[in-house]
Lab assay of single mutants.
Amino acid sequence: MGKSNSKLKPEVVEELTRKTYFTEKEVQQWYKGFIKDCPSGQLDAAGFQKIYKQFFPFGDPTKFATFVFNVFDENKDGRIEFSEFIQALSVTSRGTLDEKLRWAFKLYDLDNDGYITRNEMLDIVDAIYQMVGNTVELPEEENTPEKRVDRIFAMMDKNADGKLTLQEFQEGSKADPSIVQALSLYDGLV
């Protein structure tokens, strides 16, 4: 993909415009910024974590950033290329609610087996709590990752089998306004 070129080839721009919710001009602008920050044309896990640390200076986002990195890194080569970056950004910032929920499901399904187990969710929720640090005051019933996961599973795990399917996750998330709101945070920002 033209590693350190400051412009993408027209056919690449066209393809990314088809695969995302961005215009050709927006794709070019994002590429310019991506190459400025990642001259090699790729972003590794350490660089990704560094970006998260800028956004969450009062907590430790390392663990959460690693989980997000793994979802962005579609081809699992340990690096995020621009096409992976822009497609994930498109879903998280401008995707439909169902697209965002499928993306979030992939984030929580750490072993990619098609289910979110209690332990997988606990890993992610714990990482989120570490990331936000003491900057967020949580209600008593959610002031630990374990309590939050218990509440989520009580609401979403309809067949009580200890794991969530994509359908259970989507339906449960849509029924909880706070989850829908959290997924909409990026709307309109890009």
Score class of each variant (00 low, 15 high):
Gly2Pro: 02
Lys7Glu: 06
Lys9Gln: 15
Pro10Leu: 13
Pro10Asn: 02
Val13Asn: 11
Glu15Leu: 01
Glu15Pro: 15
Thr17Tyr: 15
Arg18Asp: 01
Lys19Ser: 02
Thr20Val: 12
Tyr21Gly: 06
Glu26Asn: 09
Glu26Val: 15
Gln28Trp: 13
Gln28His: 06
Gln28Met: 05
Tyr31Asn: 12
Gly33Asp: 07
Phe34Cys: 00
Ile35His: 14
Cys38Trp: 10
Cys38Phe: 04
Ser40Asn: 12
Leu43Tyr: 09
Gly47Asn: 07
Gln49Ile: 00
Gln49Glu: 05
Gln49Cys: 08
Lys50Tyr: 14
Lys50Asp: 01
Ile51Thr: 11
Ile51Asn: 08
Ile51Phe: 09
Tyr52Met: 08
Gln54Ile: 11
Asp60Ile: 12
Thr62Pro: 05
Lys63Ile: 14
Phe64Ala: 06
Phe64Pro: 09
Ala65Glu: 01
Ala65Asn: 02
Val68Cys: 01
Val71Asn: 08
Phe72Ser: 12
Asn75Val: 14
Lys76Ile: 12
Gly78Leu: 09
Arg79Gly: 08
Ile80Cys: 12
Phe82Lys: 09
Phe82Glu: 15
Glu84His: 03
Glu84Asn: 11
Phe85Ser: 12
Gln87Pro: 11
Val91Arg: 14
Val91Asp: 06
Thr92Ala: 08
Thr92Leu: 12
Ser93Leu: 02
Gly95Val: 06
Gly95Glu: 13
Thr96Asn: 12
Thr96Met: 05
Leu97Trp: 05
Leu97His: 12
Lys100Ile: 08
Lys100Arg: 08
Lys100Ala: 01
Phe105Ser: 07
Phe105Ile: 02
Asp113Val: 11
Gly114Ile: 02
Gly114Leu: 06
Ile116Glu: 09
Ile116Gly: 03
Thr117Met: 08
Thr117Ala: 07
Arg118Met: 09
Arg118Gln: 00
Asn119Ala: 10
Glu120Tyr: 00
Glu120Asp: 09
Glu120Gly: 08
Met121Lys: 02
Asp123Trp: 01
Asp126Ser: 12
Met131Leu: 07
Gly133Cys: 04
Val136Gly: 08
Glu137Trp: 07
Glu142Pro: 07
Pro145Gly: 05
Lys147Cys: 11
Lys147Gly: 03
Lys147Arg: 10
Arg151Gly: 06
Arg151Met: 06
Phe153Cys: 04
Lys158Asp: 01
Ala160Trp: 06
Asp161Leu: 14
Lys163Cys: 14
Thr165Gly: 10
Gln167Gly: 10
Glu168Val: 12
Phe169Ile: 10
Gln170Leu: 11
Glu171Leu: 07
Ser173Gln: 04
Lys174Tyr: 00
Lys174Met: 11
Asp176Cys: 01
Pro177Leu: 08
Val180Leu: 10
Gln181Pro: 07
Ala182Ser: 07
Ser184Phe: 09
Ser184Asn: 09
Leu185Trp: 10
Tyr186Ile: 01
Gly188Glu: 15
